[in-house]
Design a protein around this nucleic acid. Structure first.
Lengths: 136, 136
DNA sequence: ATGCGACTTGAAGCGCGGTTCAAGTCAAGT
DNA sequence: ACTTGACTTGAACCGCGCTTCAAGTCGCAT
């Protein structure tokens, strides 16, 4: 009973299926220090189910434009990591700026899709709107 | 007076300096069909000043997450290109969705930067917030 | 014992958005 | 005539986020 192969652990194919990621991506994330199998059955990786939550978080952050290196740093964050918390706060400001930029861009596109100018890019309204997207 | 080398045109170094892009990037954009010199002085590219506006627009779109190929397509847009206008409208919806996603992410980060949980990623509030960033 | 299917490894390849490099061209200055 | 300096070219290289590939290792069923 002591050294049994834990039935609750998932193999890489299962994690891939349930996370929507390719096995190759999971091994890649492991090399980057983002995830780690709880054990091995022989050569085979055996993952804890919580790994799926972690992968959800990683996917989120990646979708949001964080690099895997940034995510890797954030994942180990403890309350005492003041430098890291500062970077998170910085990232928040960065994301906030990006939200405002994309909002302006969306408004430009909104105009572009109803504008009659020929060629489109020469429309003065469009050009003015676009210039507001990233001024300087 | 007829075949004079147009003094109003800018050489690549000037365009680079004024656009903030490297000359190599300008040549790269040319290969991708984004810009084109108005003329050559011998081998040297000679750009119209309007190219700077175009580069501003390109920079905008690129900052906004468009690929250079997409930008290249948009740049030739005429009002009659209905397919292209549809794609612009689609892009608008895409950008809008992204704005909402990033807004949620910003809120998560805002919490993260004041949260005391150890490790940070295990904070239930943070996890709940994060799950809202890209649900399914 | 043979084969299968799912896993393992390291190395190479890919698309994107460029930069860097070597080798060459050209105009202007001394 | 020679140097300097900004340009030209094509090809190679880069970091990122992976995928693909070849070759090998398992456990299990026939």
């Amino acid at each position: 009973m002591a050294g049994e192969t834990d039935e609750a652990l998932l193999d890489i194919g299962e994690v891939a299926r349930r996370s929507g990621l390719a096995p190759s991506a999971l091994r890649f994330y492991e090399r980057k220090g983002l995830i780690e199998p709880a054990a091995r059955n022989g050569l085979r990786r055996a993952y804890r189910p919580e790994t799926l939550d972690r992968l959800g978080l990683i996917g989120c952050a990646r979708d949001a434009g964080f690099t895997l290196a940034e995510i890797s740093a954030f994942l180990g964050a403890r309350p005492s990591d003041t430098a890291l918390r500062d970077r998170m706060a910085a990232k928040e400001r960065e994301v906030d700026a990006r939200v405002r930029q994309l909002t302006r861009l969306r408004d430009s596109l909104r105009h572009a899709s109803v504008c009659d100018h020929d060629p489109l890019v020469e429309c003065p309204d469009f050009k003015r709107a676009i210039r507001n997207v990233s001024p300087r």
